[in-house]
Design a binder for these strands. Structure first.
Lengths: 184, 184
DNA sequence: CCGCTCATGTAACTGGTTACATGATTTA
DNA sequence: TAAATCATGTAACCAGTTACATGAGCGG
């Protein structure tokens, strides 16, 4: 999709998220940011170079990040740190207020379910089965990620995966309701 | 954000959704589509004219929709109907397969929670309280929508709102987990 | 006749996507 | 020395966003 209305002072959700990531990971290169995002099971952003490199430059231009050249062995890289202004911006973005932030979640599965009446009863059952299996896979993925994380330092990190688990559980329960509706 | 990878044969999620809406509502004008989308509590799409009018034209160019001029009283409007090819495309989009469709949901609340460690304990409690209230509001909105709908003809319609309710319930439960983590 | 809703569009913008390009350093 | 990884970028594209513009018909 195209850019949603920017939530805060002209900063997109991705920009704020990356800002937070720099705060969380400490000094790090765009490459590391990209790698970190690619590891997470979230499909929200592609972590493409074309997104990240211009983005961190924008944040530096806004003085929310500063950069310096760093080395590991002989390899050079550009390392970004968050500035006090960056921390302030991040805190403001986190909120409250949250009224504009909390909305009904977008779920492509639900979007499709809206048109289940188009299918034959047999096709509907097949669809429901496929949905269940797909949810299983996502759950496995989330749990694998959870195991991989296991950072006792930040108690909120494990909450992230818990969110994914509850999300899947809720949708599974919802599938039950759909199944019931399909049977009538 | 920018356009996600188009899920099907070059059609965006919005395009397929609108195609389904035309199927569901029967012959209707872009104006009606826009009004219908604006009534729903979903914030996924803005239902802006700049999105819808070019979109239905694209779908017509692909022969998934056909249009004709219609009248209510003296008022003229352009009415779109779905074609057999459109129905086929819609059915294909619904799936299965669903493996590419089902992912961990994007939740801006969760995104922000990731950085709760940045706040003071007092701020965290305030944040959690604000989140709870915001969820309450969303739930009320969903339930109002549910009452408004109440279409006994399509049993899947009421499943849509049920999804929203379960979604909110899951996130509320998740907030509990975060609260617990915050107390440690 | 005035204001409101119906109804259809266009124009400029933009941030993220895909895809491509390049080079340096490490490892086998 | 060849392949893989680290590392940084650019270029073209594009769908959806905001904002603006216009006019017809209907109700009071």
């Amino acid at each position: 999709m195209p850019r949603k209305a920017k939530s805060d002072a002209g900063r997109s959700e991705l920009e704020s998220f990356v800002l937070g990531l720099v705060w969380q990971l400490g000094p790090c290169s765009p490459y590391e940011l990209r790698a970190h995002m690619a590891r997470s099971p979230s499909t929200q952003w592609s972590a493409s170079a074309g997104a990240i490199y211009p983005l961190v430059r924008r944040l530096e231009a806004s003085a929310l990040l500063v950069s310096a050249t760093a080395r590991t062995g002989q390899r050079k890289r550009r390392e970004y740190r968050i500035t006090p202004a960056g921390v302030r911006a991040l805190r403001k973005w986190i909120g409250p207020p949250l009224s504009d932030v909390v909305t009904v979640a977008h779920d492509p599965l639900r979007t499709r379910a809206r048109f289940l009446a188009l299918l034959t009863p047999a096709q509907r059952l097949a669809w429901l089965e496929a949905a269940r299996k797909a949810l299983d896979q996502v759950e496995a993925q989330v749990q694998a990620w959870h195991r991989e994380l296991a950072d006792p330092a930040d108690p909120f990190a494990s909450c992230m995966t818990r969110s994914g688990e509850l999300d899947v559980a809720g949708r599974r329960q919802w599938l039950q309701a759909v199944r019931k509706a399909a049977k009538r």
